[in-house]
Design a binder for these strands. Structure first.
Lengths: 159, 159
DNA sequence: GCTTTCTTACTCGGATACCTACTGTCCGAGTGGAATAGG
DNA sequence: CCTATTCCACTCGGACAGTAGGTATCCGAGTAAGAAAGC
């Protein structure tokens, strides 16, 4: 799985902690996590396209959460960064080679392997869709949120 | 996810249908599914290392199932082909950048994001571990098994 | 005719290139803010 | 002192290279079968 998923989730949590009052620039977030600025920006753009973040252009611009943390599931973030297509995709190799000349009716029933893999992936998606950003926030220690807010406040005024 | 997972699963199902009496060569399996022979062989080797298949060298050699289909889970095949490490791996970016100078005790509690992602992945693995090769065989139509057996028998005697 | 030996063809197994996609980087368009000049 | 204007620095956004991992391929080691020669 892409590394950007972890980045996106951490940035969403951070933005939730910082509140919606003023946007946070990519450079600030990248400095906070020691990540490549431009590449992180690319990933945040994906979150904007998915309607998870809202971007503010211009000076003092940046990103903020587009909607309340209770309405943002981990599934939303994963799909936004990783793409909507599932990990296991059936290539229908049963129709290749020897099965190429078989009539269409022999493949009316879906591939059992694809069905089984799909079932597992649905369980994964269901678990991700059941966890919202608010749950992550609730589970995290309050001290982390405080430190994060303090760091961003200091950097804003400091050198 | 690697394409080889689908290949491995289909080959296991095919080998189960053909029975354990005589091994099947990579060339025969590759012809049956119209796959690159050498690359398929590489993947079958991975299944041998995992103890799922058994290889017989020499003329008339090939692969067969190493153990009964009831004891082979989809998880076993996926791990054998894809590797044991999970898809989402926490890089602990919370410790990078601003968090680099924090004391160790602040990270005693595991990362909440990693925990949530791990929970979803455990659900996926549990679903895969609950499905055995025997379940796939039972769900598949008997006609497919017959056709497969017939094709491999014909190819063996034919040109 | 039977046994032993040798050849041979076929198989797995690992070492070697290629290619897609993720990772990383750069520059331009656009915007808000601040300084400045004028009234 | 207040206001309108101009300039500027900062931000996002998409277009452009670099690199790791998956994909594909080839060749060598090893084995069992089969043919051939000898008894």
């Amino acid at each position: 799985m892409s590394e950007g998923v972890e980045w996106g989730l951490h940035c969403c949590v951070t933005l939730a902690w910082l509140g919606d009052d003023r946007p946070v620039s990519t450079a600030r977030l990248a400095a906070f996590f020691d990540l490549p600025t431009a590449y992180l920006n690319k990933r945040l753009q994906a979150l904007v396209r998915a309607g998870i973040l809202a971007s503010t252009p211009g000076a003092r611009g940046g990103f903020r959460l587009a909607r309340p943390p209770e309405t943002i599931t981990l599934m939303d973030v994963v799909v936004a960064v990783e793409g909507p297509d599932e990990a296991f995709r059936c290539m229908e190799i049963r129709r290749q080679g020897a099965g190429a000349e078989l009539p269409e009716r022999d493949f009316r029933q879906p591939c059992g392997i694809a069905t089984a893999m799909r079932r597992a992936e649905l369980a994964w998606r269901r678990e991700l869709a059941g966890q919202t950003l608010a749950d992550i926030l609730a589970a995290a220690p309050a001290a982390s949120a405080d430190r994060t807010r303090r760091w961003f406040a200091l950097e804003r005024t400091g050198s």
